[in-house]
């Protein structure tokens, strides 16, 4: 300790240089999780799973107490809903059958329905207010790889941005650096859905770089485009709630995602390498 006090300036400078060196080496390829990162993450994610389970247990008890009064009403409502969904499902199965028949007739590939998916629980979230990234309890040993698409009830949630042995980090659509090539389901009008930290606190996304002659309207459903390099086409992102123009004359749209990010507790990951399908065609 006294040694450090004596050479304080060199010590501080040394640590700064060390940090800068690490930044220089990891800034370029932030995708690769090295041995050290991976093994530290292995230990930490175990602890996080434990803490998350304890926290969820208490949150569940608390929710139960709070919602006890309207459980009966909720139950009746869900029963009705269930009946309605059952009828809907029968109709959908019928349509699906019909769709497959038609698609076979037209020699089309059915992209969306056949993806192999794997479920995962969210165990931890980023500790700063700058990022919305979260950690899930599946990793390399479950077949997860970088840039796989992450789905949640409602549609697209984000992509895998880092993978460890038994955990993976998900960058959600809300993240400031996230961008998805997307299009309107109705007209095919093209744009890029990006996270925006000012909108993401309200749970909203922003669509930038909209095509010059794209025909967009409020209420349009936005899906992933087939120009996207990492996301399979046709996955639902959300719907347009606001259209506008920046001071520079660029059009933008505010998109309300169909995934409720504030209540997310589990996600699905598409483990298929969908790009190869295109190459095989």
């Amino acid at each position: 300790m006294e040694f450090l006090h004596k050479y304080k300036k060199f010590f501080i400078l040394g640590l700064i240089v060390l940090s800068l060196t690490m930044m220089a080496f990891t800034g370029r390829n932030n995708y690769e999780q090295g041995v050290i990162r991976s093994s530290v993450g292995f230990v930490l994610s175990g602890g996080q799973t434990m803490f998350a389970n304890i926290g969820n247990w208490f949150a569940d008890r608390f929710d139960f107490l709070r919602n006890m009064n309207n459980l009966h009403a909720e139950n009746i409502r869900l029963q009705f809903e269930n009946d309605r969904i059952q009828i809907e499902l029968d109709r959908m199965l019928h349509l699906d059958e019909e769709n497959r028949m038609l698609a076979e007739m037209m020699h089309l590939y059915r992209h969306y329905a056949d993806y192999a998916t794997i479920g995962a629980n969210i165990i931890a979230r980023d500790t700063t207010n700058w990022h919305d990234t979260f950690t899930i309890d599946r990793g390399r040993n479950d077949g997860i790889a970088i840039n796989m698409a992450v789905l949640a009830p409602g549609g697209l949630a984000g992509r895998i941005s880092a993978v460890g042995f038994n955990y993976a980090v998900v960058t959600p659509l809300l993240e400031d650096t996230s961008a998805v090539a997307s299009q309107s389901l109705r007209t095919g009008g093209w744009g890029v859905v990006q996270g925006d930290i000012n909108l993401s606190s309200h749970g909203l996304l922003r669509m930038n770089y909209i095509d010059m002659d794209a025909d967009l309207a409020i209420g349009d459903e936005i899906i992933t485009s087939n120009t996207s390099a990492i996301f399979p086409p046709g996955i639902r992102i959300g719907e347009i709630t606001e259209l506008g123009q920046t001071a520079g004359g660029m059009r933008y749209a505010v998109v309300s995602p169909s995934v409720d990010f504030s209540r997310l507790s589990a996600v699905l990951i598409i483990t298929d390498e969908f790009e190869f399908e295109f190459l095989g065609e």
Partner: peptide, 15 residues
């Protein structure tokens, strides 16, 4: 190490 995109950024700022 766990969340960071660039290792060393928070370490330097925190330090």
């Amino acid at each position: 190490i766990f969340f960071g995109r660039i290792i060393g950024m928070s370490a330097m700022l925190m330090m």
